[in-house]
Amino acid sequence: MQVTLQVRRFNPEAPRAQPYEQEFTLDVPGYFTVLDTLIKVREEMDPTLTLRCSCRASICGSCAMRVNGHAKLVCKTKLTSVMDAQGKVRVAPVGNMPVVKDLVVDMKPFWDKVRGVDPWLQPQGPEPKDEYLAPNEAMVHLTGVMMCIMCGACVSDCTVLEVDSNFLGPAALAKAYRFVGDPRDGAAKGRLGKLSEYGGIWDCTRCYECVQVCPKGVAPMERIMALRDKAIVAGFDKAIGARHTIAFGEIVGHSGRLDELRLVPKTFGMFNPLHLPNLLGMIPVGLRALRRRKLPPIRHKSIPGVENVRRIFKKVEAGQ
C-alpha cells in the first residue's frame, strides 16, 4: 500500500535552523508499523533522517514520537491504525523536551525528574540472609508499574508540564509509586512528604493524557492518585491539594453536594497568612460569578435523601 509520511525535521547545523515538514511517499506492506516505515525511509530514501530506535518490540523505550499530534511508541503503531483517507501520517518529535535533530530530543529534563524521586529501594533494618518475604499480589501489582519503559510519551503530552516545568511529571511520579508501593521499602513516609511538596503529586490536573498515551498500560495518573491517598493517610494533609480533597469529601459527605463557598476557605484556610493571597485571589472570581448569577446560594441546603450519601461515606471509611 502507499503511504505518505509527513515528518517534522530539524537540522541544528543548517543556517537559520528552523523546523520544517517533509513528505516521503513510499510503498510498504500492509503490516508495517510507523517505525518500519521510518527505517525504510532512512535506509532507502534519506539516510540523514535521524531518530532513536532499537528493539522494534516496545520494550527499549527509544522510539516515542508524536503521531498525528499524540505521543506514541512508533514500533507498536501500525500504519493502518493512524493513516488518514489519503494515506497520510504526520510524525513529529515528542513534546516538552528540546529537539536535538529531526525526531531526536534531549531527554535530560526527563531523567532529571526521575533522579529527583530518589529512585532506588531503601529498605530499613538489617538485611535478611535470604530474600525479603512479600506477597505475590504486591509484586504482580508493582509489575504493572515496572512495565514502564521510560519512553517519555506521558511526559510529552502532559498538559501540566507544558505550562509548568517544575512539575515532576507522570513518569517520575509513577516511578516514585513503584517504591512507595513496595512492601520492602522503608522510606515511604519520607518519600510521601517530599512528593507532597510543590511540583509533586498535587500539581497533576487529572487530564488523563498520560493514561491515554502510555504504550505500556502503566496509567501514571492513577499511580499519582494512589500516591495522594497514601500521602493523606500518612498525615501529609497540609498541602493545598490535600486540603482541597479533604474539604471536598467533608462537604459532600455532610450535605450530599458541593458547596463552593465553603470549599474555597476550607482549602486555603481562613486565617492562614501563607495562603491569604490565594484566598483573596478568589474574590474576583466570586464577583464575576455573582455578576453572571452563578454564585452558589449563601444558604447551602442538603440534598433530599442525604442520609443515604452519609451512609455510603461511612461504609467507605469503615472499609479503609
Binding site: 529501594l121 530474600e131 515496572m146
Partner: peptide, 8 residues
C-alpha cells in the same frame, strides 16, 4: 535485595 520485584 536491590529491589527486583521477582514473582513469589
Amino acid at each position: 535485595h536491590m529491589g527486583v520485584i521477582f514473582n513469589r
